[in-house]
Write a protein that binds this DNA or RNA. Structure first.
Lengths: 170, 170
DNA sequence: TACATTTGAATCGCACACGATTTAATCGAT
DNA sequence: ATCGATTAAATCGTGTGCGATTCAAATGTA
């Protein structure tokens, strides 16, 4: 990508805006399904990390979702109000708040399991092939690594948690 | 293929979350450059549409950015306070509010022109090739079409404004 | 052991997003 | 021409995001 071709608006408008728009539209696709569970998309992501990894600190959740306490603390309080999670100071390190699932939170996982399938169904329109999505996902993943490293001001790939929900299988 | 491995979890967690995360990280990349101009990323997108198309209604801006008046009205009022735009009811249709650039808003374009190049520079790290980005952009574009059609509940591609900023060149 | 530094959450203020509703203007079928 | 339906903005309430700051706990170093 030479400077010459960039003049006005390549990555800028060709990628950044569509990414921003697609992200919002996808959240809207989830909304009706998540409404049935009574949670929002960001809250769903927190639940996903808890279902996958179990009890963990606010900081750890933040590293996995690329969010910080200023966003997570209020969000977690809302999940707590809904009796889906519990928050408790760690006995070992009083600075740390450990987040864990309640029974109600664990039970929600069963209902939530249907969601991915229902989302994929709604994309089953042959416009985009599975292979295309696969390639797309790989680049998206790389992009996330680059962006995350820019943000942290280093060149290590180590910073990306490969086990973050949705970043790697399993 | 067991339920566990079904591509279901695929689009869901493999694409949706990274898309959400990448979108936010990209906004953060823009922040320092936009700070120099005193505007936010969504405000920058509105300015882009005005620079590209000139005077247009709130509804039209919304169609181009996939936003509605509940988001745009307050945002436009902030741009108006900054003396970058003007808002005026249309004489022809009193329901419509026409948004246009002030001189200050027009002048900002010159400064803003540098931004795309500076953004692209920060991606010039060889991790992602130009071809990869090109393919990525194509799929992203298709995705946007599919998502937008889902949202509007029809199968026409016509709904997507191919001239939306960043969706197609020129 | 003191004590400055670092760290993890929380808090604060502002700006989106967006579902739902309201208001005013226009359209359209009779 | 009338009046119900539609349309464009605005308004309202809730929930993120995030930069900046605060606070308390833990850490490192003299």
């Amino acid at each position: 990508m030479t400077k010459q071709n960039v003049p006005e608006l390549y990555l800028d408008n060709q990628v950044c805006f569509p990414l921003y728009a697609a992200s919002r539209l996808i959240t809207k696709i989830y909304a009706p399904y998540l409404n049935e569970l009574g949670i929002t998309y960001p809250q769903y992501l927190v639940m996903l990390t808890l279902w996958q990894y179990g009890e963990q600190s606010v900081k750890t959740i933040g590293e996995r979702l690329y969010l910080e306490s200023n966003t997570l603390t209020p969000l977690l309080k809302r999940l707590e109000q809904k009796k889906l999670i519990m928050r408790a100071r760690s006995k070992i390190d009083e600075r740390t708040v450990l987040v864990s699932l309640t029974n109600k939170g664990r039970e929600m996982k069963e209902k939530a399991k249907e969601i991915p399938g229902r989302i994929v169904e709604s994309f089953d329109d042959k416009t985009i092939t599975e292979e295309e999505i696969s390639i797309f996902q790989k680049t998206l993943f790389k992009l996330l690594v680059v962006l995350n490293n820019k943000r942290n001001g280093n060149n290590l790939l180590d910073n990306l948690d490969l086990n973050a929900p949705g970043l790697a299988p399993r």
